[in-house]
Design a protein around this nucleic acid. Structure first.
Length: 123
DNA sequence: AAAGTGACGTCCG
DNA sequence: GCGGACGCCACTT
């Protein structure tokens, strides 16, 4: 499983009406500092439909400045459509909409793919 | 092939 | 609390 694939998997598991941060996903994959790589992953492979990149925002709760096809505006539309309030500046209320990341699927996925203290095996 | 870059975040000073 | 530097992964020049 490649790093990017894990990122896509996690993002695709973000429930509707919730948002996640790059750093949050980075921790999930086992690299707390890989936030940049996470963003880049979504950037190079938007995977329309399968990976709701619009639900991923930065630590400030701001939407992507260069979101495809209309930038922040398009992303705002998608979020509002899911019931997420977005400011004119393109900010979302993190303390209200930030994803817990405690979904069953994610939990199992992390146990199986992100060995943290246990002895890990390299393929 | 090495260095630079990018939808970011954390650490150090 | 703020500013600067580094780290991450894949891609580009």
């Amino acid at each position: 499983m490649k790093f990017f694939e894990i990122v896509y998997t996690m993002v695709s598991k973000i429930p509707s009406g919730r948002v996640a941060t790059y750093g949050q996903i980075a921790r999930m994959v086992g690299n707390p500092r890989a936030s940049r790589a996470v963003g880049y992953a979504l950037h190079v492979n938007p995977m329309p439909g399968a990976v709701p990149c619009h639900r991923v925002v930065n630590r400030e709760g701001r939407l992507a400045p260069a979101f495809a096809f209309g930038g922040t505006d398009a992303q705002r539309q998608l979020l509002e459509a899911e019931g997420i309030a977005v400011s004119e500046d393109g900010y979302v209320d993190m303390k209200r909409y930030q994803w817990d990341g405690k979904t069953e699927e994610v939990r199992r996925f992390k146990k199986g793919e992100a060995p943290q203290e246990t002895a890990q095996k390299e393929e």
